[in-house]
């Protein structure tokens, strides 16, 4: 799709080139964030507050019951922490870029990006980094450690590696679905509202899967796989997997979602006729 970069070729050189571009984008984001320090800190406070809210919701519920379906209190806290971790990493790398797409189309900035000698999807997906989200992700990890100690579980290196790999699959699902939906902006100007409305669905990821049944469970496992994004990694950590197939399902759904988003993206760009210029 894009012209080959000048200089040495081969997959390794390409990877190195993109790594250095991404490094530059990171530096850029750091500089920009540091221009608005107070704002940066305030958003961390807001996010922390929301995270605390979710935790206290679960705490209040568990003051009236011992279990939600098969999940005990600290297992659910671990789940809320993991869901927050996955969501914040997604937030830090992708979210703002995805929601920005409609603006880039409306103002015609996308024309310019299409001309640059890099993969356009890479550029619009990862152009800015939201640093505060990584701070919040760190907080989520702290909560997870605490919850793990209270369950109690002490996962080995293999489980933790598996957990992190499954988190990557979860982040990929979040990103792919969000990106595919952002592509609606190619067809209507009012897409931003839909995108934000849809983002609310991500909150389902922090709820224990076995509480759900019937159509809801099937839909949010196989169509919009929110109920496996965080549940499967946590079940691996807490030794709750009913079968290893669950992990395979998560990885398979991640690949499927990514493929779907790439298909939507290509279709949309083919349709693109530029906004104003």
């Amino acid at each position: 799709m894009n012209p080959a970069p000048p200089g040495p070729s081969g997959p390794l050189a390409g990877l190195r080139r993109y790594a250095s571009i991404y490094g530059a984008l990171w530096r850029n984001s750091v500089v920009r964030e540091m221009m608005f320090k107070a704002n940066f800190l305030m958003w961390i406070v807001v996010e922390t507050l929301w995270f605390g809210l979710q935790l206290s919701f679960m705490a209040v519920i568990y003051s009236h019951t011992d279990r939600i379906a098969t999940w005990s209190k600290w297992e659910v806290i671990l789940l809320v922490g993991a869901a927050q971790f996955i969501q914040q990493i997604f937030h830090g790398i992708f979210l703002n870029n995805c929601t920005q797409l409609s603006e880039n189309i409306r103002t015609g900035k996308l024309d310019f990006m299409l001309l640059l000698p890099v993969n356009t999807r890479f550029l619009i997906s990862m152009r800015t980094v939201d640093l505060g989200s990584f701070v919040n992700a760190g907080l989520a990890v702290a909560v997870m450690f605490y919850a793990a100690a209270r369950i109690p579980i002490s996962p080995g290196l293999a489980e933790i590696t598996g957990f992190l790999l499954l988190c990557v699959a979860g982040i990929l699902i979040h990103y792919s679905l969000m990106f595919a939906l952002s592509c609606v902006s190619f067809f209507t100007v009012k897409a931003q509202g839909i995108v934000w409305g849809y983002y609310n669905l991500f909150n389902i990821a922090r709820l224990p899967d076995t509480a759900f049944r019937g159509f809801f469970r099937i839909f949010f496992t196989f169509a919009v796989p929110m109920l496996i994004v965080a549940n499967v990694p946590v079940k691996l950590l807490a030794d709750k997997l009913s079968s290893p197939l669950e992990m395979l399902l998560l990885v398979g759904m991640a690949a499927g979602c990514f493929g779907f988003s790439e298909w939507v993206w290509r279709k949309s760009v083919r349709n693109y006729t530029s906004a104003s210029s």
Binding site: T65, I68, N200, L201, N203, A211
Partner: peptide, 29 residues
């Protein structure tokens, strides 16, 4: 903004359904 409102109201029902199902699971337990 009618379309926007419609989507907001319709999307809002999904977390609501999730909360209700969560409570149902608690009551069953």
């Amino acid at each position: 903004y009618r379309t926007n409102f419609f989507f907001r109201a319709a999307f809002g029902l999904i977390p609501l359904t999730a909360t209700l199902m969560l409570w149902r699971a608690i009551y069953e337990g």
